[in-house]
């Protein structure tokens, strides 16, 4: 039913030619002769979870890289967030304007404690206030991510993989993002931990967070995504409901190769 109403909502949006919440237009990046991302066009609604799949090297992470300008910017194209092109800003301003991203690898500040990791984000975001408020905001973000309160003061480098991922997600949430880009949050996790990541994503969805999710763990991807996009060799080859996309011959071919 939820999906139904969302589809109607999409329908309404596009028919009235209103700008989508997040619109990606002609986005591209090449390295020499290799087109990592070609002419990508996507439009995402507020509160939507767009799953992004594709074989290794299909340009998924490059797509996130050029959206955030970390570590490199796009060659061409625009990313419009509520009608404004964010790619004209500097990398840290893109983050502060509400586009938060997590890395595939657990990218934390290893010698800073878990709470200091998140605190650094709060202090540098536009919402920074007094020290007491900032610490409270950092703890709130850690709680939202489901990070255990007993480990707040442990150096992030000493935490296990799963908890480091939670620190990274908490830091992203502390930016109070309008769009959250999650790059393989379930990679190198156990099934139990993947279930917790899934629950976390669904909780964020309930709070109306707009999420772009790159993931190789297909059950997780299909369970949380409203729509699924598949990239192959830097091109969008399919987009639609997860069930329909997975059944598409071009998608099967991209993953498994052509039938002889």
């Amino acid at each position: 039913m939820c999906l139904q109403s969302r589809m109607t909502f999409n329908h309404f949006h596009r028919n009235d030619a209103l700008a989508a919440f997040l619109e990606i237009k002609g986005l591209g990046k090449s390295f020499g002769g290799i087109h990592a991302v070609r002419q990508l066009d996507l439009s995402i609604d507020r509160g939507e979870i767009l799953g992004i799949a594709g074989p290794n090297g299909s340009g998924k992470s490059t797509f996130f890289n050029i959206m955030t300008k970390v570590p490199f910017a796009a060659d061409r194209g625009e990313v419009l967030l509520e009608g404004k092109n964010i790619l004209t800003r500097k990398a840290h301003d893109i983050a502060r304007s509400g586009v938060a991203r997590t890395f595939q690898r657990e990218s934390v500040f290893p010698s800073l404690s878990a709470v200091d990791n998140v605190l650094t984000t709060v202090e540098n975001s536009s919402a920074g206030g007094t020290h007491r408020d900032n610490v409270a905001a950092a703890i709130l973000a850690l709680d939202q991510a489901g990070f255990p309160a007993t480990l707040h003061n442990t150096p992030a480098g000493a935490l296990p993989v799963f908890l480091r991922k939670l620190v990274m997600i908490a830091a992203a949430l502390a930016l109070k993002p309008r769009v959250l880009l999650l790059d393989e949050p379930a990679s190198s996790l156990t099934p139990h931990e993947i279930a917790r990541i899934q629950a976390l994503i669904l909780k964020l969805k309930e709070a109306d967070m707009t999420i772009l999710l790159i993931e190789h763990v297909l059950p997780l991807l299909t369970a949380v995504s409203d729509r699924l996009a598949v990239l192959d060799q830097g091109e969008l080859i399919a987009i639609g409901t997860p069930e329909a996309v997975i059944a598409e011959p071009r998608v099967v071919e991209a993953y498994l190769g052509k039938k002889q």
Partner: peptide
């Protein structure tokens, strides 16, 4: 805050950019 940010940048430049550090 500034000192913490300086340590953060020293440890992970890219994560720092993503977290809004200048």
């Amino acid at each position: 805050p500034l000192g913490r940010s300086m340590r953060a940048v020293a440890q992970n430049r890219e994560a720092a950019q993503l977290m809004g550090l200048n």
